[in-house]
Amino acid sequence: MRRTVEEALLPALVALLVAAVVGDVLILSFGQSPGSVYRLLIDGTWGNAYGFGQVLYKTTTLTFTGLAVAIGLRAGLFNIGAESQLAAGGFLAGLAGLMLPMGLPALATLPIYIVAAAAGGAIVGGIPGVLKARFGAHEVITTIMLNFIVLALLNYLTAAHLKVEGTLHTAEIHAGALPRLSSMIGAFRGSAANVVLFLALITAAAVAWFLFRTRRGFELRATGLQPAAAEYGGVNVGGVWWRTMALSGALAGIGGLNYVLGYKHYYEESFASGAGFLGIAVAIVGRNNPIGVVVAAFVFATMSQGGLAVNAVVPKQIVDVLQAVVIIAVAASVPEVRRLARARSAA
């Protein structure tokens, strides 16, 4: 028991320590005091309702992309395509919104939006899955390449057919806008946090149930641990691959609702802006566990929002650097901690 707790927490502690040292050096190089910058960061995120609302808003998208990457990794698949799956999900949901009649209530439109967004992500995610299952094409490369292809395609469709002149976004959607949290809790006024946050939490619970309590989930994890053994045990590994990639894409795609229908009420070019790639970090730091993913999404969302809070004193890109440092430190210390633990239990 002690060993598993150690294995779960030690890499995060190492990452935190390394990030703190690098952060201090960067802040000092800018002639500022680390203490006051960190205080500014906390004040601007957890210290007031607006900042906290923004953190929750960012947590929402990152939870979806983090779950998408995590479920792929559980099956031994590395989905680098969450960025374009997120965009495609937002695009199709936006398209559906533009076609639905004005004034429909959110309760009626929400299922349609979820299905549209999931379909957009599932198509983009499913293609690399099929290519892997059918031709053995490595999903890391195909998902990266598809990111560029899909984003270019969406940009073309938006620019050529859908955009409002002089902008990079579509017309406003009037059918079934999803309520913001500020409509329930006044203090969140102005922040983008909306009810998709609850959808994210429900989805995380559903993914946990699927992974650990269903036969399909068991097959998925068995494939991830040892595909040859799973195949021998009667699992259709190719089927698991493409279904998991489609499911992974669908999860990322639903994340598109947060911006397109929860916040802006239109689809905008490159709204994903790195949330898909950060999903990889969220999954790694959350150790591919749905609860861990939610926690990691909250941490990374805090960092992203915190960057904006300190930007007047130190460049907000300090946060990108620290996020990268955290990813590298976790990725490097997980195998090391496991190795040390094994060596000790063997001794």
């Binding site: 960067l26 790639f277 970090a281 460049p315 890109q317 300090i318 946060v319 990108d320 650097v321 996020q323 990268a324 440092v325 990813i327 590298i328």
Partner: peptide, 9 residues
């Protein structure tokens, strides 16, 4: 990600 952030910083 590191280089994108660090070069801007």
């Amino acid at each position: 990600l590191l280089v994108t952030g660090a070069t801007r910083f």
